[in-house]
């Protein structure tokens, strides 16, 4: 990890100021970085702050949400506080993004071609003709054999998987340094999922992009990620390489997640579960966010939130159970 990070997020706090004057700490003190050619998976349940983290990177947090603190640097350039005008030159160009719902992520009233050409012309300042040529190339790259016909088609004429391919084409059109894929396969058939993820992987290698893969599917993590960040309650509770996470998970939450996976090696009648649900973001417990559901909860967990502690290999965990071990 000697080469500089593409993206480094430090102490990011994105809060939502709700009408009942509560503050939802959707993202709270998040730190991580991604290097070129690396796929970092951001894992967590619904409501754990994964998507808000990615939208914070894009500076697309709408009211009542606000990035209240922290720094997001893209190749050393600070994005927080950057004007919207300047951000428009980064979004789509330096950072590409793919969303969860391909069915609704494309504008229904414009052709596929229109929507790809638009982004090419915005960022590359090229003629309509050249943009069209490049758009056709892009469509071929993401697997449309009859790309020229597809250019004239509308989103509703394509299947979900095909639309996600178009989204990928748009996201990689300007060869971004960072690709954010926000649950890119959640809404797709299982058979299509692998194709889409393989395509993302292929594009990553081709353009040496860094990929932030947001998912709640540990199978996807096992297959495609290099490093993993586990989020819970707006915070990263455990981080490490894929191997570290799957072989020697430390945090009770990560363990809970792993136990809830069906396994071919062991036969058991019941899958493990994590009791309870994620607390609402404006109602997190005072201490450790996971304390209300943790099987190993201790007295101090309820009062104070542990810090994230990393060992030499970079495997970090936010839990008092391992505090002694470190010292």
């Amino acid at each position: 990890m000697t080469n500089p990070a593409v993206l480094s997020v430090e102490d990011l706090k994105t809060y939502f100021y709700l009408e009942n004057s509560n503050i939802a700490k959707a993202v709270d003190r998040v730190n991580f970085s991604i290097h070129p050619g690396e796929t970092v998976a951001l894992v967590g349940e619904s409501g754990s702050g994964k998507s808000i983290t990615s939208l914070s990177i894009m500076q697309l947090i709408d009211k009542p949400g606000k990035i209240v603190n922290g720094s997001i640097q893209l190749e050393g350039r600070e994005l927080v506080q950057l004007s919207n005008r300047k951000m428009t030159k980064i979004r789509g160009k330096e950072v590409g993004m793919i969303f969860q719902e391909p069915m609704t992520a494309l504008n229904p009233v414009y052709t596929i071609g229109n929507q790809i050409i638009e982004v090419l012309r915005k960022h590359k300042k090229i003629s309509k003709k050249d943009a069209r040529k490049q758009a056709i190339e892009l469509l071929k790259t993401v697997g449309f054999p009859r790309a020229e016909a597809t250019m004239k088609e509308y989103p509703h004429q394509l299947s979900g998987g095909m639309r996600q391919r178009v989204m990928i084409a748009i996201a990689i059109s300007c060869e971004p340094k960072l690709l954010i894929a926000d649950e890119p396969t959640t809404a797709l058939d299982v058979t299509i999922q692998a194709q889409i993820l393989d395509l993302i992987n292929e594009m990553k290698k081709k353009f040496n992009m860094a990929v932030l893969l947001i998912t709640h599917d540990l199978g996807v993590v096992a297959e495609y990620a290099d490093r993993v960040l586990v989020m819970y309650g707006g915070q990263i509770v455990e981080q490490g390489t894929k191997r570290q996470l799957f072989k020697s998970a430390k945090h009770p939450y990560t363990n809970g997640l792993l136990e809830s996976l069906p396994s071919l090696d062991q036969s058991s009648d019941r899958l493990g579960t994590i009791k309870g649900t994620v607390p609402a973001a404006d109602n997190f417990p005072e201490g450790c966010r996971f304390s209300t559901r943790c099987p190993h909860v201790m007295e101090k967990c309820i009062k104070t939130n542990p810090d994230i502690l990393s060992d030499d290999s970079g495997h970090g965990v936010r839990c008092f159970l391992y505090e002694e071990e470190e010292k």
Binding site: L60, G92, H123, I170
Partner: peptide, 13 residues
């Protein structure tokens, strides 16, 4: 809607 978020993420003004 989602496609407006996409347009914003594409860097449209």
């Amino acid at each position: 809607s989602d496609y407006i978020r996409t347009a914003k993420a594409k860097g449209m003004s």
